[in-house]
Design a binder for these strands. Structure first.
Lengths: 234, 234
DNA sequence: ATCGAACTTGACGACTTCTTGATACGCGAT
DNA sequence: ATCGCGTATCAAGAAGTCGTCAAGTTCGAT
C-alpha cells in the first residue's frame, strides 16, 4: 500500500496566509483543499473527507469555534486551529470544542508540519470509521446534514434526540449504559438527569418506531441502558 | 463502572515546578506519579501504566528526547513535553520523537489542562480492545453487546445473572468462592446475602443448562463455591 | 411582550428484577 | 434409617426500573 498523499483542508479567509500555507504544504507533498468561509469549509469537509483541517478562528461568517463545534457533530477529522488570538482562554475554548492542536500566529512552518505529522499519526491509530453517514436496516443518518430517514421517509429530530440516536447508531448493537449516554449527550457534569434519558428516548421512539410501545430498533436493556439494533431480529 | 481519575506521571527535576504541577493537577482530580529523572520516570511508567506523561526536557540524567524515544519503544501513552526551550527545532525534534504535544514554559494552567484533556481524549479512542468476548464450549459471551449464546441460541440475562456469568467465565475452570462472587457482584458491603448467590445461580442455570438439575457447565463445588467448565467433560 | 419549540421535572402505573423465607433435596456420618 | 449440613427450588412480596403524561421552564424568534 503506497502511503498516499494526505489531503489538508485549509479554512482561512486571508489570501496571503492561505497562499503561504498552500506553498508550504504542497511543497511537502500534501494535497490541498481551500475554503474562505466556515460554511464553505464544512461543505468541503463533508464532500471530500480530508485527512486534516487547518482552521483559522477569524472567519468572515462567524466564529471558528462555532464551526468547529458543528464539524465535530459528525466528523472526527483532526483539526489544528490557527489563530492570531494568543489568549489562554481562546486556546482552552478551542481545544475543548474539539480542536486537536492550537497554533498562534506567527508560527514556523517546521512546527506546523511537525504538529500536522502528530495529528495524522493520531488519526491513523484511530482508524476512524470515517462516517459521513450511518446506515442501518430501515434507518439512515446523514451526519453533516443532520437528516434522518426511517423506512424511506424523513424524520425531524430535536438536537438531543439526534445526539442520542447518533450515539446509539455509532455503537449499533452494543449496549450503552445510562451513564455513557448521559456523559456523551449532556456532558461530563450530569447530576440527577437520569430521568431525562428515559423521556428523550421515549420521544425518539415516537419518531423512529412504528409502534413505540413495542420497539423493534431502540431496545431497552433493563437495569443497564439502551441498544440500537444493527440487524433485524430473527 | 465509574470513570476513574486519570493518572498523570510527571517527569521533572525542578522541585518548584513539580510542586506547582502537583497542586494544579490534584486540584482537578488527577492522580499523580512523580519522578525526578528520566530513568526513574521510565521505571514508574512501566510499573504503573499512567494515562498520561508530562515530560520535562531538561533532566539531570540525559536529554528528555532520548528518554521519550526509549519510552516509545514499548508504550504509546500520551506524552506532553514541557520545556523552557522555545526554539522551533526543539519542538520539531520532540514532536517527531513521539511527543503528542509541546508546551513552552511559562504556560498557563488552563492551557495545560486543556491540552491534557485533548491528549486523554485521543488516548481513549485507541485503547486496546481487550477481551470483548469470551468463548467457551457451547457458550459465548459478547461483552459490549451484552449478548450470551448457549448452543447457538441467544439467551436473555438479567444484570445480576450477567455479572455472575461473566465473572465465572473470566475465571473459567477455576473455583470461585461464595465470598468472591458476593464481593464482585454485590460490592464490598454485603451482609447476609449468601443465600442470594444460590438463588441467582439457580436462575442462571435455568437459562444456560439443558437440564438444570444436572448441571454440565456451571458446577457446584460443595463447601467452596462455583466453577464454570472451560472444556467439555470427558 | 408573546409565542412556540425544546428541554426539564415530578408523579403514577405497569412491569421486571431482586430479595426473602419456607420447604425440599442429596449425601456423608452416626 | 436418621440426623445434620450445605444446597436447590419455589412463590410471594419488596424494591427498583421503565414508559408516559402533564405541568413547568428556558430560550430564541417574531
Amino acid at each position: 500500500m503506497t502511503t498516499d498523499a494526505s489531503t489538508v483542508l485549509i479554512i482561512e479567509d486571508e489570501t496571503p496566509v492561505r497562499r503561504f500555507l498552500r506553498t508550504s504544504l504542497t511543497a511537502h507533498g500534501f494535497r490541498l483543499l481551500e475554503a474562505e468561509t466556515g460554511r464553505e469549509g464544512l461543505t468541503l469537509a463533508a464532500s471530500h473527507n480530508p485527512d486534516l483541517v487547518l482552521l483559522d478562528l477569524g472567519l468572515p461568517d462567524g466564529d471558528g469555534v462555532d464551526w468547529l463545534g458543528q464539524l465535530r457533530e459528525w466528523s472526527r477529522v483532526p483539526v489544528i486551529v490557527i489563530s492570531a488570538r494568543g489568549r489562554e482562554d481562546d486556546k482552552v475554548i478551542a481545544l475543548d470544542a474539539g480542536a486537536d492542536d492550537y497554533l498562534t500566529k506567527p508560527f514556523g512552518v517546521g512546527e506546523l508540519l511537525a504538529r500536522i505529522r502528530v495529528a495524522l499519526r493520531h488519526a491513523k491509530g484511530l482508524e476512524a470509521p470515517s462516517d459521513v453517514r450511518i446506515d442501518l436496516p430501515g434507518l439512515s443518518i446523514d451526519l453533516p446534514r443532520r437528516e434522518v430517514e426511517v423506512d424511506g421517509h424523513e424524520v425531524r429530530l430535536t438536537p438531543i434526540e439526534f445526539k442520542i440516536l447518533v450515539l446509539l447508531a455509532r455503537n449499533a448493537g452494543k449496549v450503552l449504559t445510562h451513564r455513557q449516554i448521559l456523559a456523551e449527550v449532556w456532558g461530563p457534569s450530569h447530576a440527577g438527569l437520569h430521568h431525562n434519558v428515559r423521556v428523550h428516548v421515549a420521544l425518539l421512539r415516537k419518531k423512529i418506531e412504528l409502534d413505540p410501545t413495542h420497539p423493534r430498533r431502540l431496545m431497552t436493556e433493563t437495569g443497564v441502558g439502551y441498544r440500537l439494533r444493527d440487524r433485524e431480529p430473527d
